[in-house]
Design a protein around this nucleic acid. Structure first.
Length: 729
DNA sequence: TACGGCATGCTTTTT
DNA sequence: GCATGCCGTA
């Protein structure tokens, strides 16, 4: 035990050994947050203050949950069974399965991931003949999820006009559809569990009594409902101790409903007195931390924190100005080659960007130079088309009322069931109020129809697989559904076939782990239902060749929680980073700044920041001002690899490229001065549209046009000869 | 029913 | 620039 505590600094020690009380730990980037959480649990257990079963640890990602498990396993000799460690959604799933009756759900309910949910909404709109121009499915999805996160069922949502009334009706219809199909979306997992705990006193009491210590990771990312969920669970008599760890400066998921305000509310509502700040950073050199501190200081409404390190100042931050996005990419490649020549591991180098679209140019340059790289993000295993199709068959076996799954594979591989027949089926299903699957027998009653054959196929599958072990079950379904044959005959099907085999392997893996957990298999296909839940809740690792020494490419969001020896942050331009959609409101801008803070604090030793004068974006060349975040870095911390010029100065002229390699092929159009003394990046006023920023220019003479972002009034192309533009200071 | 051609429209995305 | 989505034709 004393070894355990010996490695901690004063604040960490203080946090780990806090007496049973509510606690808020402000854990800066690289300050040993995970260590504090796991050591806290280990300390509680090894000092006999509580039993493993009294511990509930909540994380946001499966990865974090797994890591916590692994670290605890290493820390503690005793087994950690009985402890509940998982994601909010995973824990809710567990609770709802255990109390499905009380929650009003069948035991084998299915979980919809975001894509499934969207598909279900589209299907609903079609069935109800709703104009999807008026109610775009994505917006409706967002609306529904926002209501659920606010804890509001349709009856509780305010309406004020026809539109809002109709929207709530659709929310209600969606709910009805989900209930009929026995499916539950991500937000529903949380809300349903919340309501279960709130309304069912015995169940609530049981868990309130059981969980004495609730520990929350990444608390700044909790949404409103998750906060209330925690509050409810911890609110027993006597209350449980809530130990929340987070960093308000790293809250970058506001757009998804995360509420940094939860930290303040927690402090107030739970009367947390001694907030503990972990400010000593074990990751980065001083210059990097000083830059991060300087940047984040520009945000208001912070809980306040300043990172420091015992490591030296280290190297200056390197800043590079490129002519274009491709020049920037070539420079990055050049620097990477230099780093590798100097002995760096490619896997310790990260290339970060604000949005995924930026990866293409970088990938191209890396590929041309023959540098191995790995892109994070994109499709994950369980999100692949072929896997989704296979899962849909499996879902129909477990739950024939799952209309999303039905619609997905009823004609895949094609068996001559067209849109017509599906529409007729959907209409019939509506009148009968039954699932698509259950409607088929009602339809005309001809057993020979292709639809009836499809239903028979599923039924046979269910019978044939009832006693099969999960991997064989999957294998069998792949054959009988002819999915495998389909991809065998497809030109590009090789990889898909491999993925289908991988699905069998995943099933085998899952079975092995479930058996190790010795979970009783009550019903036929119970393990299948668990496997399907697992597939929805954990989309699988991002595609990546493990173990290869490759440069890591990812968005800044994806980089949160990771660290690298050398980090490149590219595209530091106004409109890109900070993103133009966030620039106009201060809340948005502050989130962008936190994103920048996250990006900077990923670096251990070396940080490169770059921007380009011109960049291809949305199919057109744009010229952006360099990011304001660069200006927020104190000059002594940085070394410009290109001569710094006044920001947004009048072109400034070109300088000689340092190594001759980056000579611009063509002058970026908008670097030239425009008629009337205007330039790209300049703030202008227009009589009708108000104030805007010039973001691009093209043409000359009487054809000269400029593109202006007027914020609320949108982005417009205006002819300089026609539009009256007034330059603002 | 299936595929090809054109128009459209774009952040970030733990679950 | 690219991917998605809708519509028209074989």
């Amino acid at each position: 035990m004393s070894d355990l505590l010996a490695k901690l600094n004063t604040e960490q020690l203080q946090a780990v050994t806090l007496p049973p009380q509510h606690a808020l730990i402000l854990a800066g980037a690289g300050s040993g947050k995970t260590r504090v959480l796991t050591t806290r649990i280990a300390w509680l257990l090894s000092t006999g203050q509580c039993d493993p079963a009294a511990i509930l640890a909540v994380t946001f990602t499966n990865k974090a949950a797994k890591e916590m498990h692994a670290r605890l396993g290493a820390l503690l000799p005793i087994n950690t069974r009985g402890m509940w460690i998982g994601t909010f959604h995973g824990l809710c799933n567990r609770l709802l399965r255990a109390h499905h009756r009380d929650a009003g759900l069948p035991q084998l309910f299915q979980i919809l991931d975001s894509a499934d949910q969207l598909a279900a909404i589209k299907r609903l709109l079609k069935a109800l003949n709703v104009d999807d121009e008026k109610f775009p499915p994505r917006e409706l999805q967002h609306f529904i999820n926002a209501q659920k996160e606010a804890g509001l069922r349709p009856a509780a949502v305010d309406v004020w006009d026809d539109y809002s009334r109709r929207r709530v009706e659709l929310y209600q219809e969606y709910e009805t559809q989900c209930q009929r199909e026995s499916v539950v979306d991500f937000a529903e997992l949380l809300l349903r569990t919340f309501e279960l705990l709130e309304r069912n006193e015995p169940v609530r009491r049981h868990y309130q009594r059981r969980f004495r210590h609730i520990l929350v990771d990444e608390f700044q990312d909790t949404n409103r409902l998750q906060y209330r969920w925690l509050k409810l669970l911890a609110g027993g008599e006597p209350p449980a101790c809530l130990f929340c760890v987070g960093d308000d400066d790293q809250s970058i998921y506001r757009f998804r409903g995360a509420e940094v305000g939860n930290m303040r509310d927690f402090e107030r509502e739970f009367q947390v007195t001694g907030v503990i700040r972990l400010e000593q950073n074990y990751r980065s050199h001083g210059n990097i931390l000083d830059a991060a501190n300087a940047i984040i200081r520009n945000n208001s409404a912070r809980l306040g924190k300043n990172l420091w390190t015992e490591a030296g100042a280290g190297e200056p931050i390197r800043i590079f100005e490129a002519f274009s996005d491709s020049d920037e990419a070539r420079w990055v490649v050049d620097e990477i080659q230099q780093l590798v020549r100097d002995g760096a591991l490619r896997a310790d180098i990260a290339l970060l960007y604000r949005s995924n679209a930026q990866s293409r140019v970088l990938e191209h340059a890396l590929f041309s130079a023959g540098i191995p790289y790995r892109v994070y993000g994109g499709l994950r295993f369980f999100e692949r088309q072929e896997i989704k199709h296979a899962l849909a068959y499996l879902r129909l076996i477990a739950n024939p009322d799952d209309d999303t799954a039905f619609a997905r594979v009823v004609n895949f591989p094609t068996r001559g069931i067209g849109a017509r027949s599906i529409e007729a089926l959907q209409d019939a299903a509506r009148t009968w109020s039954t699932s698509l699957y259950a409607t088929v027998p009602h339809l005309g009653g001809k057993p020979g129809t292709v639809l009836a054959q499809f239903v028979r196929l599923i039924e046979e599958l269910r019978r044939e697989t009832a006693r099969l072990p999960l991997p064989e079950l999957v294998d069998h379904v792949l054959d009988r559904s002819t999915l495998r044959d389909h991809y065998k005959s497809e030109k590009e099907g090789r990889e898909r076939l491999e993925n289908l085999d991988e699905l069998i392997a995943a099933a085998a893996n899952f079975t092995a782990e479930a058996q190790a957990g010795a979970e009783a298999l009550a019903a036929d296909h119970a393990l299948l239902a668990d496997f399907l839940a697992h597939a929805s809740l954990e989309a699988g690792e991002h595609q990546a060749d493990q173990g290869m020494d490759a440069v890591q490419l990812m968005t800044v969001h994806a980089a949160k929680g990771l660290e690298f020896d050398a980090v490149f942050v590219s595209g530091l331009e106004e409109g890109l980073f900070p993103h133009e959609n966030s620039i106009l409101e201060s809340e948005g801008l502050e989130e962008e700044r936190r994103l920048m803070y996250v990006a900077v604090t990923r670096a251990r030793q070396r940080l490169y920041l770059s921007f380009a004068q011109s960049r291809m974006l949305h199919g057109q060349t744009r010229c952006n001002l360099r990011s304001r975040f660069l200006e927020e870095i104190p000059a002594p911390l940085a070394r410009w690899l290109t001569p710094p010029k006044p920001r947004g100065g009048p072109g400034g002229g070109y300088y000689e490229p340092p190594r001759g390699a980056f000579a611009p092929r063509a002058q970026p159009a908008a670097a030239q001065a425009l008629p009337g003394g205007l330039r790209v990046g300049q703030l202008v006023r227009h009589a009708r549209f108000g104030t805007g920023v010039i973001i691009a220019a093209e043409g000359s003479g009487s054809d000269a046009r400029v593109q202006i972002n007027f914020g609320d009034a949108g982005i417009k192309w205006l002819l300089l000869g026609v539009a009256k533009l007034e330059a603002c200071a």
